[in-house]
Design a protein around this nucleic acid. Structure first.
Length: 611
RNA sequence: GCUCCCGUAGUUCAAUGGAUAGAACACUAGCCUUCUAAGCUGGAUAUCGAGGUUCGAUUCCUCGCGGGAGCACCA
């Protein structure tokens, strides 16, 4: 049962209660239950980051006051150390400095060669393979994870679709980037609170209510409420073009809703119940589990206090017309920011005030080390203003991060629900499934129709998610079907295929390899060596993805890993090999599967045993 | 007008200030009696322009040019 249903139920048994008090109490119960659940969760066994094989070597380099980096493939080495800066300071040539540095670095690797101003450290590949495979075996699903964030909490606000509108592909970005970030932070040991900041409040609901009373079709509303709400939303904005009074009516309607008018509250809650159930279908399809659904309306009871505090501290001022604004000084840090409104002249709230109250609430409730807002880049100014206001309230500015992402537009222009120029997520996922199914029917005709459908659904959804997560956040995306639904090349199916291929080999091997305990490892070929090096880098990639809030680091890494694995299984036969070579190769296959699984998990994508 | 983001092969994307700027798509020539051909191998093409900082710039700074977004009672 979602929170709006619970509120509705409570109001039915107790009509005198204030809806926002009820919401705060029930939401608070959800938070308590969530925190209790978190506390009871057992942490998976994972090594401290410092104990990963490759990290140890890097730390050894750093201990000498040097900066390790990765060498290019041609160098055939594990760690590179540049000596240009040192050479400059000492006024010697880089090659000479490197020559000298190589002596100091020698104990770290089996061989230390230098190339110009670099020293390349090459580890004993067999020992290295032993270490890495053992760690993959010991840690399993936690390989690559760390305890770096232990004891720290990160709040991530994401998804945040708007009630009464179908979810569009714009919200898809927030949803899957947010979900991935949540997993990436958890992987580093953080306690993560994922919040769905539903767009369930504000003037738009006044407008929708006006449209609802004026033009609703009771029959259609019963049959397909989501479609009918959308029609009313569009209708309102069409009518408003010719009727200026309509906007004012909408504002007035919202003012009454915010004051808790029981009749309006009842209808509004119905909208929320319907929409949330609709969103849930998409979350289920995407495999997304947001911890808490706390919409904008949840913070209503806190707005007066927040506004009063801002006024008392002279951060905000009340204008002559009754509206309340925050003005920034000309000098830094907030210097030059345009002022913004907290309240309209009729006294009703605006979203900036709700965001400020929400931030204060989250700080108080979760004591986070960081609050991340996964919201489109068009709201950058809004967040700069909100964060600046919070800083004036003496919150640490470093607490707040807006992880902006680029807009999704269509070839014919910006998406607009009002103009009917929009791709709905439901349609996107349906089309993805159709396209995946077509390929499955070709490749796996032996599967039953049901199995084909299940796989198509999973592959389609994964492809859509991966397409988004594999590029950096900030760039705008022009939506085209072919691009969004790419099923080959650098795509989810490619990675899923690699995983399934690995599992298939393991299954046919007929023997279990224990990664923790392989006596005799043989690493001879180029591909084998590269796989070991790739496994070793995964923990750092995961850490970097967290440091940069950048899921695409994981995607880029996985693509490279699966490419290398593809070369490997084409060139180096596993099952036909014998003795120690066979065991070693099986171990590499097993480790590959594990690392792909762990990486895909961070992207929110589940592996398939077969594809 | 002001502010922010983005400009990399024909296209879509990568590249903690480091070594010959990497992938994928498309195009093209090969590889299935050998572990799943949604695969593998080979082949051409790119840093918007001008300065600056640096041993070294796709990356940092300045100025242009081009594209996108935002700038008070929507969110």
């Amino acid at each position: 049962m979602n929170i709006y249903q619970k509120i509705t139920e409570e109001l039915e048994t107790n009509p005198q209660a204030d809806v926002f008090d009820v919401a705060m109490r029930l939401g608070g119960d959800d938070i308590k239950a969530f925190l209790a659940r978190k506390k009871a969760e057992k942490g998976r066994a994972r090594p401290p980051y410092e104990e990963y094989a490759l990290v140890k070597v890097k730390r050894g380099v750093e201990a000498l006051g040097l900066k390790p980096q990765y060498p290019p493939e041609e160098a055939d080495a594990d760690i590179a150390v540049p000596f240009f800066e040192i050479a400059k300071a000492r006024r010697e040539n880089p090659a000479g400095a490197a020559q000298e540095g190589a002596k100091k670095l020698a104990p770290l690797g089996k061989s230390v060669a230098n190339a110009g101003g670099y020293v390349n450290i090459r580890l004993d590949i067999v020992r290295h393979a032993h270490d890495v495979l053992r760690q993959v075996g010991e840690c399993g699903d936690a390989y690559g994870a760390s305890y770096d964030g232990a004891g720290k909490t990160t709040v991530i606000e994401y998804s945040a679709p708007n009630i009464a509108k179908p979810m569009g592909v714009g919200h898809l970005r927030s949803t899957i980037i947010g979900e991935s970030l949540k997993r990436i932070y958890e992987f580093q040991g953080y306690t993560v609170v994922g919040i769905n900041h539903l767009g369930d409040f504000g003037t738009q609901f006044g407008k929708l209510l006006v449209a609802y009373f004026a033009w609703r079709d009771e029959q259609k509303f019963k049959e397909n409420p989501v479609a009918e709400m959308l029609r009313l939303y569009v209708k309102f904005h069409e009518e408003a073009k010719n009727d200026e009074m309509l906007q004012d009516k909408g504002r007035e309607m919202f003012r009454k809703l915010e004051q808790g008018d029981p009749e309006l509250v009842k209808i509004w809650l119905e909208f929320c119940v319907i929409s949330v159930a609709d969103f849930q279908k998409i979350y289920d399809a995407l495999g997304i589990t947001i911890d808490l659904t706390l919409g904008e309306s949840f913070y209503e009871t806190l707005l007066e206090g927040a506004a009063t505090k801002l006024l008392d501290k002279k951060i905000a001022v009340k204008n002559e017309d009754g509206s309340v604004a925050v003005n920034f000084p000309d000098n830094p840090p907030a210097g030059g920011l345009p002022s913004f409104l907290l309240k309209k002249k009729d006294g009703s709230s605006l979203y900036a005030l709700r965001d400020i109250a929400a931030a204060e609430f989250r700080v108080k409730e979760f004591s986070p080390a960081r609050i991340i807002y996964v919201v489109g880049s068009e709201q950058t100014l809004h967040f700069r203003q909100v964060f600046a206001a919070l800083e004036s309230l003496e919150y640490d500015r470093e607490l707040f991060h807006h992880d902006a992402f680029g807009m999704v537009s269509l070839p014919e222009g910006k998406m607009s629900t009002r103009e009917g120029r929009v791709i709905f997520l439901e349609d996107l996922l349906a089309e993805a499934e159709v396209r995946a199914k077509k390929i499955i029917a070709e490749k796996n005709p032996e599967l039953s129709a049901q199995e084909q459908d299940e796989r198509a659904q999973h592959i389609g959804v994964s492809a859509v998610m991966y397409n988004d997560l594999s590029q950096s956040r900030e760039k705008n995306i022009t939506f085209t079907w072919d691009k969004a639904l790419s099923l080959d090349g650098n795509s989810a199916p490619y990675l899923l295929y690699g995983y399934a291929r690995a599992k298939s080999i393991l299954e046919k091997a007929g023997e279990e390899v224990d990664l923790k305990n392989i006596k005799d490892i043989i690493i001879e070929t180029e591909r084998e060596k590269k796989l070991v090096r790739l496994f070793a880098r995964f923990p750092e990639v995961a850490k970097q993805a967290c440091a940069d809030d950048a899921p695409h680091h994981i995607a880029v890494y996985l693509n490279a890993l699966v490419q290398e694995f593809g070369r490997f299984y084409n060139e180096d036969p596993v099952l036909k090999a014998e003795g120690a070579v066979r065991v070693s190769r099986l171990a590499l296959v097993k480790a590959t599967a594990q690392v792909i699984k762990n990486g895909l998990h961070l992207l929110g994508i589940k592996t398939l045993e077969r594809i």
